[in-house]
Design a protein around this nucleic acid. Structure first.
Lengths: 349, 349
DNA sequence: ATTAGCACTCACATCACTTGACTGCTAACA
DNA sequence: TGTTAGCAGTCAAGTGATGTGAGTGCTAAT
């Protein structure tokens, strides 16, 4: 559909988006002519603009105004810049900045995501976010019951991603002696060791019935801890620079600003904004309808550690945003993250 | 200074603040007369208003407008309502709502603060916050070193407020046998047991030099964990309903809204907004200058568990806010929190 | 196909004018 | 002396008329 655009139409459309991105104002035929196409007249540009308008790429706010780009124009624009080498779009200063920020102590995947979101927002000046995916894809390596004062014990669950320890359980008077705990630990490990955390819902009693016997309470406690952990970490979204969107005139009224902020502060909403197929290297979505952020464009990149996709990071900004820069930053972050980080598990935790 | 106000002036001033709080519009003499003082004429009210204006309680936005309250008027108003029984200002429905929300499983003081902030914001419809104070006033009860796979061990620090366990340390090849860990645990407990977490900076080597000997690495790791814990939990502020402020016409422009949001999302700023003397039962501050929220009023209450002050919770809203309701809610929350919650330590953790 | 030229459109700013909600003042009254 | 009615004065906010200028679409000439 877009293929039959003449070379000149393409140049004009690209120029129009460029100008609109930098000014935010409707672009006039003479603007385009003087800055991008000095070899023709503005009248020629005008007739081309008419054609582009008929094709649905651009529109006029009112009869005597310039043109503004529509969704398709942005799509065309993004395609045209994606072709180039995106990493070359960052200055040396910026790449150095990114690298520096990542060398700090970052153990947890959580810290990593947060830091990525911050960096992206700092450099691009747009609202950014990072999401950990596959949180439930965690394997239990070992469970320990550690006795502490009184008749309590701490449940310590070691996984391939870190550890979970936030709750003490009360053993009542059942077993204050070490052997009780030892047995309980052995049983728990027989049940849980090597299992994936996402399967906990399926941990039904049937299969392991006779093993549990006297340890039913502890078993339930552990299940509970895992459930809470999964629910708290599912769709873990970090948003950075939320207020930066308010600097752009598109969101210069309280109504829209409030709406935007309420959408992005709700993690459920945020995860709906992510591309369905999380494995896409890059995703650019412009003006998603009915999402509460229809005046926005969302660019995401999936990042990996080793071969595994750990999450996504991206930018949410006005439709007229600096796509070139954003894609460049995301691309560089993507690369940096997989090289700077030691694969989890070799390091502590 | 305010004492010499005549009874009628008091009634008029109170009426004016009342009306202004409910409408947000400058209040005219005839409004006051018709709704609050039908026994006199509006001209009389006018002359009283002149006097109150001369005393600095109220002002006119422009010559032909009604009056709006100034800081002193709000102070007068708050004093006059604080005298009454604040708890009676809540409906039965509201008190039931509060009680219900608190009966849920709430282990950590953190959950408690968060929930309090949510409740306050839900009921009052203003932005609310809760702060844990005295986080550093935590005593170490016990330290455990739990060996996990490889040559690693988890450091588990049990305190009177809960437990800290987020890091595994690498023992290298030093000691894979249990006895090494046992000795290390004993030494660590001799050093740390019973000590207050806030004293960690003073844990210098001199005094306990010869005890550490071969456990210097582990000792440093533990110190590090404690330091990080303290710094992450100092001034732990939870803000709820931040966007609610944007519903009030006072913040109906993006400039102010952005400013407000950036102030309250920064925890350092927030802790500066708290009253210096955290032990005050209630604190009402109106239009604090140079704070970035000079158009706001801030009401805080200290809440206790047992005799110990655990934190503060409060509301930040427009100066013309429903003081009666807010104070009522805070008062009830205060009472409920100390009764619903089991003293920490009896319960799990 | 391109261009110059021109008439047309329309958002936006400006200005004069009206309206109405207040006040402050004054003079009369209890 | 305190209160009140009455009235003139003030000023924000709304309304409508008018001008301005940036931009277009159209047409006729090249």
């Amino acid at each position: 559909m877009g293929k039959e655009l003449s070379e000149r139409k393409k140049r004009i459309l690209h120029a129009l988006v460029d100008l609109y991105i930098s000014t935010g104002q409707p672009v006039s035929s003479s603007d385009i002519q003087s800055k991008y196409l000095p070899e023709v007249s503005s009248a020629t540009v005008r007739s081309e603009l008419s054609a582009l308008e008929a094709l649905g790429y651009i529109a006029q706010p009112h009869t005597s105004a310039g043109r503004i780009p529509l969704k398709d124009a942005y799509k065309f624009y993004v395609e045209s810049i994606s072709a180039g080498d995106s990493s070359s779009m960052l200055t040396d200063q910026e790449t150095a900045f990114i690298r520096n920020r990542f060398v700090n102590r970052l153990n947890e995947i959580e810290d990593l995501s947060k830091e990525a979101a911050k960096i992206i927002s700092d450099i691009t000046n747009y609202t950014s976010f990072a999401v950990e995916t596959n949180v439930s894809n965690i394997e239990i390596e070992e469970i320990k019951l550690v006795p502490i004062k009184g008749s309590k014990a701490v449940v310590l669950i070691v996984t391939n991603r870190g550890m979970i320890a936030n709750k003490a359980i009360d053993l009542k008077s059942d077993g204050l002696d070490g052997s009780y705990l030892d047995t309980a630990t052995r049983v728990l490990n027989r049940v849980f060791q090597g299992r994936n955390i996402k399967d906990i819902e399926a941990f039904e009693l049937g299969e392991i019935d006779e093993e549990i016997k006297g340890f039913r309470d502890i078993f339930d406690e552990v299940l509970d801890i895992l459930r809470i952990y999964v629910s708290e970490h599912r769709d873990n979204v970090f948003v950075e620079g939320a207020l930066k969107m308010l600097d752009y005139p598109e969101y210069n009224n309280v109504e829209d600003a409030k709406n935007f902020l309420s959408v992005i502060s709700d993690r459920r909403n945020m995860s709906e904004l992510l591309p369905d197929n999380g494995s896409l290297e890059f995703s650019v979505r412009i003006g998603k309808e009915d999402s509460g952020v229809d005046k926005c464009a969302i660019i995401t990149a999936a990042y990996k550690v080793g071969d595994e996709i750990m999450g996504q990071a991206g930018v949410i900004g006005p439709q007229r945003m600096d796509y070139k820069k954003v894609i460049g930053v995301l691309d560089y972050i993507k690369k940096t993250m997989s090289t700077v980080i030691n694969p989890i598990g070799d390091d502590e935790q």
